[in-house]
Design a protein around this nucleic acid. Sequence first.
DNA 1: AAACGGGTATACCGCTCTGTCTACCTTCGG
DNA 2: CCGAAGGTAGACAGAGCGGTATACCCGTTT
Lengths: 245, 245
Amino acid sequence: MSNVPSLPVTPRESTADSVSGQENSEARERVLAAAYDLFSHKGVRGVGVDSIIASAGVAKRTFYRHFRAKENLVLAFLQRREQLWTMGWLEAEVTNRAAAPEQRLLAIFEVFDDWFRRDDFEGCSFINVLLETAEPGNHVRQASATHLARIRDFLQRLAEDAGISQPDDFARKWHILMKGSIVAAGEGDQLAARRAREIGLTLLRAEGVKVSRQGDGKRPLAERPISTHHRPVTLSSNAVPSKKT
Amino acid sequence: MSNVPSLPVTPRESTADSVSGQENSEARERVLAAAYDLFSHKGVRGVGVDSIIASAGVAKRTFYRHFRAKENLVLAFLQRREQLWTMGWLEAEVTNRAAAPEQRLLAIFEVFDDWFRRDDFEGCSFINVLLETAEPGNHVRQASATHLARIRDFLQRLAEDAGISQPDDFARKWHILMKGSIVAAGEGDQLAARRAREIGLTLLRAEGVKVSRQGDGKRPLAERPISTHHRPVTLSSNAVPSKKT
DNA sequence: AAACGGGTATACCGCTCTGTCTACCTTCGG
DNA sequence: CCGAAGGTAGACAGAGCGGTATACCCGTTT
């Protein structure tokens, strides 16, 4: 049973790993959910396979039946992070909060503002993994870069919709603001999102975009039904919680 | 005997670690120099004590005579990074390239532009260490945050000199641009520094600062005597290079 | 009924890492 | 001359890591 697994276990999450071709196992899902929590908060190098299987309540053999090696789990984690965080949370939340493209760009930092205030703020897993993996050729590192690029694609689409002349350059600039504010938040600056928003505002205006002020500070924040943050409903502290969490 | 050690071995680098009170040993200096290269390029978690002592050509016993534990070496490394990178390179280079405070702020990104193009670009060790150390209370993590704050102090001084109204807020914003561009460069965007510079320019103007254009693009780059980059003259590939570098 | 696929539990291997310990060598000052 | 300080070399302990192997259990399918 276990209350509501993070993802409905439905379809193939791509990159075939499972031995017999079926990646929709319950055990696999528990592992992935446990890995999501642990990896996103403690980093992929800081969490061992033993911790994950203990937290997932799964046998080691079962783990290695679904993932050839730890690296494969990490790659699967990054993909799930994109589903849950990038798409299921950030993009959804932004799209929900504003309609005009330039307002959506600004809304990113309003979403970040809430995020940075969370006591269990984890930072951006893509950045974290990228930076804790030194070797340039690494699979995991490249995957992180790809997922970051996909965030940039979202920004670029918004820039195009806003009629900005050089959407790629603009998206990369906006991404610099996002990444910079995330690192600043990790450093402890809880106001980082507001600062980044202000920079973004001047940047938009310099770009010739007319941005109708609907609150320079906080948003009206009427109804916002989505998102209980991008965290999957973690399976309630299963089984042996391992020794040294 | 070993060509020009990175620092003249002269005075106390604070935080007494050495057993008998003298931290000006030659062996200690070799260790610190080796650690600087390895840590800054491969991360502090990715480099073991064995690699360091092999690269430094020093016995293990000697290492532990000077550093109670690896953590103490890491802290010493961060301090040296501040001396060599923050002060000896970034601040010196910026101060050398421009005189007016607003020009110095912009010069940061011109210095970064050169830096990002290096093939052995290592990123900001303070950010790297901060992000690869998950636990919030950690000594090393806090030390990294402190060193980052000291960079911000430099920015704040420049902001004050430029007559900017809220220097702390401005410094934090500028730092967001710096950190964001560094991460972007780590991701592979070699133009990140120029993008950040452009953002900074609009930000300065929005702040009411008159910035006389002396080249919107590249600088005149006349004489610039300082800096062969912040890298200490690494002791030429000493001793046993260990097995698996 | 038998076979099989997937799950559990646990021991184990080999490697790496931090840190200690033994033993010897060199230099230098009283 | 001798002893202490600081150095070298290398074995070693103990822990954690990723990954494998053994043995058993259970439900479904054939």
